[in-house]
Design a protein around this nucleic acid. Structure first.
Length: 376
DNA sequence: TAGCCGTGGCT
DNA sequence: TAGCCAAGGCT
């Protein structure tokens, strides 16, 4: 049994038969050929994807889907991809869109820096005239890191690129039985991926690896008996696929306390309005419309203070989990006694709050205010 | 470089 | 249930 692996013993040596000491066979182009043959028969049909063997899809759609799919499930992306491509059919349409409208359209999808970078990227591409068609050119655009640049280059432009995402990390860590914990294993995994990435059909290969990771080589209880790469897989041969890749322990999430404030007035038109703010462009929920709050953050509790003078009562508590902390948000309802002098403040129709584009934590708070529920 | 940055589904 | 996790990027 292999006790450990490290960069020095990678890639695994192959004898003339192409099989290593555990019987795993990754010699020549066999692994890629087997995976592509499986993909030709089993590719998932997705709105942003063209079937295997057909012309590459529109780079705009490939890029948009890849950004939306960063740390986000296929199921969650679907409706957003439809909405964005319907509203903005080309990158030029998106580049010309209003910031607040795009941010509101992204509301609920999370990781809002992606939406800010999406607009910056669309405008950069519009200025260039078209998407760059090389990995290096794509990598220079805002919001495109090593993964996304490689994926777009391979999928949209049929470039040879080594595409490594969390699926590929898992599949490759198992194929080569890489025991080094993540993230230290990344260089070895990337080198291993390069050895099996084919010169042709690199885009299909990347998508095939992701489909394999999503449907066969899953995190929990991988379906090794159904895997087209079982004969290539050292971890499967050793009966320990589920144990790979090894991951570093995670830190505990703190719980933070904060307050948000629901402030109504009767507007100039005689209808009820709610005070909203546009949050600063950087940091948590940056650039998003929100309710005023008391300054809570990942680093600490809010100070409990209202943004302006008034009398307040608690309408209940909203609990919400973020990536690295949990929040208990007390919703305070009251009448403001003075005019709002809050950065980014504006009034929004009370009857149209569901269209304000609020991030989920504030959408929960708004539901609480409107329903009068005690706890959500 | 390791911490920051959302959300909802699954087990 | 409470934690884990998803087609990561930025600083």
């Amino acid at each position: 049994m292999q006790a450990s692996s490290h960069p020095d013993d990678f890639p695994a040596c192959h004898d003339e038969s192409g099989a290593d000491e555990n019987g795993a066979d990754k010699s020549g182009a066999g692994t890629a050929d087997r995976l592509l043959a499986w993909y030709d028969r089993n590719a998932r049909l997705l709105p942003w994807r063209s079937p295997p063997g057909t012309p590459a899809p529109d780079p705009y759609r490939v890029w948009l889907s890849e950004v939306m799919l960063q740390q986000t499930t296929v199921a969650a992306v679907g409706p957003y991809f439809d909405k964005f491509t319907r509203t903005w059919p080309t990158v030029h349409d998106l580049a010309a869109a209003d910031d607040a409208v795009v941010m509101a359209a992204w509301a609920g999808l999370g990781y809002y820096a992606r939406a800010r970078n999406l607009l910056a990227c669309a405008r950069a591409v519009a200025a260039l005239g078209a998407f760059p068609d090389t990995e290096e050119g794509l990598r220079a655009l805002p919001g495109l890191g090593a993964y996304t640049a490689a994926a777009v280059a391979a999928i949209a432009f049929d470039r040879h690129a080594v595409v490594v995402d969390a699926n590929v990390e898992r599949v490759v860590a198992r194929l080569f039985a890489i025991d080094t914990p993540l993230p230290a294993a990344r260089p070895a995994i990337r080198a291993a991926t390069a050895t099996i990435t084919p010169q042709r059909r690199a885009g299909d290969f990347a998508q095939a690896m992701m489909d394999l990771g999503a449907t066969i080589c899953t995190v929990k209880t991988p379906r090794c008996l159904l895997c087209p790469l079982r004969q290539d897989c050292r971890a499967a041969a050793e009966g320990r696929a589920e144990g790979l890749p090894v991951k570093a322990a995670k830190k505990a999430k703190p719980t933070r306390q904060g307050r948000a404030f629901w402030i109504e007035r009767i507007g100039p038109g005689g209808t009820a309005e709610v005070l909203m703010v546009t949050r600063p462009g950087k940091g948590m929920l940056g650039g998003m419309r929100a309710l005023p709050d008391d300054g809570w953050s990942a680093r600490g509790d809010g100070d409990g203070q209202a943004p302006l003078a008034g009398t307040w009562r608690s309408a209940g508590v909203v609990r919400h989990g973020f990536t690295h902390f949990d929040l208990e948000l007390q919703l305070m309802v009251g009448e403001a006694l003075s005019a709002a002098k809050i950065a980014g403040a504006h009034w929004w129709p009370r009857d149209d709050v569901e269209n304000a584009g609020l991030p989920t934590v504030f959408a929960k708070a708004a539901r609480l205010a409107l329903a009068g529920t005690q706890d959500i």
